[in-house]
Design a protein around this nucleic acid. Structure first.
Lengths: 131, 131
DNA sequence: TAACTGTACTAGGTATGATAGTACACTATG
DNA sequence: CATAGTGTACTATCATACCTAGTACAGTTA
């Protein structure tokens, strides 16, 4: 399903958070789809279930999944649980990275092209693209 | 000069790297301008000089500064030392964050507006903006 | 020569991450 | 009701990374 970089300085649970978030955002995992159970995924990845649980917890706090005792963990609908605070943080991070990219020589046009390509890849250009 | 968040999970030297990088990118620190010495900054921030040195080392590895034994550390010219690998990494990070922003409901137009604003703030729109 | 600069090393303490183990609460099924 | 699944939470232990204090070497400048 995914591979963890044991040698990375990034904690294992954070790598998990990022991987699962990516699968949700690219809709490989769809709304209300069940995630593998904590114990199953732990077994598959040969890591401790508490480490999985820590990642699932973080995803739930960020609003990407929801969990039901006895049933499992599921992908949240995209409109749920995302607060303005998180949105502001993502925007702030984008601004920082965009500034760094421009400092490194990337042009605004190049970045705009990137955004359009991502937009097409994700939304099909139906709702957002009015240019 | 800047403030460190001692309570943050992020290591102090990493916060330093980010702050200094930001000052360089926004040209608060200009090319060939000397950075405070390792010992002076350590004294000002009440942290260990080795911690400063670690941050400076990382900035040098990434190509943002250069150091001369006995003289000091200085801001590198923007065209120096940035390899393609770092550029690719920044672009990849931007793609990831943009995808997440769109998943959270930010439109492509909104993101494009952000990029144009940053472009104006940084370059004055002289070299890059041909729209 | 003195005072600055960067750089590198050792040793010790602390915090974080991951693990192993255990246990509780809930759901679904037969 | 028992069983097998699910999530959740806790304790204890170990390894690693970070930061510190201290020390020392090499270079530059006045």
């Amino acid at each position: 399903m995914f591979e963890l970089d044991i040698r990375s300085r990034k904690p294992i649970y954070e790598q998990l958070v990022e991987k699962l978030k990516e699968l949700i955002i690219t809709e490989v995992l769809k709304t209300d789809e069940q995630l593998p159970s904590v114990r199953l995924l732990a077994q598959q990845l040969t890591i401790n279930p508490n480490t999985i649980q820590k990642a699932y917890r973080e995803l739930e706090v960020q609003g990407y999944i929801y969990s039901i005792k006895g049933k499992g963990s599921f992908v949240s609908p995209a409109s749920d649980g995302f607060n303005t605070e998180k949105l502001l943080k993502v925007k702030k991070d984008i601004m920082k990275l965009v500034s760094e990219a421009m400092y490194l020589g990337v042009t605004a046009d190049e970045l705009i092209t990137m955004i359009k390509e991502i937009n097409l890849a994700i939304g099909g250009g139906i709702e957002n693209d009015q240019n």
